[in-house]
Amino acid sequence: MSLDPAAVRRIAKLARIRVADDALPQLAGELNAILGWIEQLNEVDIDGVTPLTGAAQMTLAWRADVVNDGGDAERVLSNAPDRDGQFYAVPKVVE
């Protein structure tokens, strides 16, 4: 797998990261190096090996259906860049 500058531009856009056009080739090179390193895994022969569904086959921990959180709008809004009353306020996004 290899990424060209156009693919990198698209990935950056989906991730809402602004990348200048002249930075794309270098970024593509770095990402391709990472992908290449990970592709070493393809060398392992896994024919006949059942996929591992979880580390050490531990099951997912469950919580009880109990309300023990929330009820503190101030704490939740504490790092909001902008607010209005008890709402978060963001630049208007209209559908």
């Binding site: 259906d65 109990v66 959180d69 929330g70 009820g71 704490r75 009353g85």
Partner: peptide
């Protein structure tokens, strides 16, 4: 359910804004 899918905040309809939000729901 009483609580949310992945947090302990309440699910009741019609509560005051952001009063039923855990830090998990707000993605801290």
């Amino acid at each position: 359910s009483n609580a949310k899918l992945f947090s302990g905040a309440a699910t009741a309809f019609g509560a005051a804004p952001n009063s039923q939000v855990s830090l998990v729901d707000a993605a801290f």
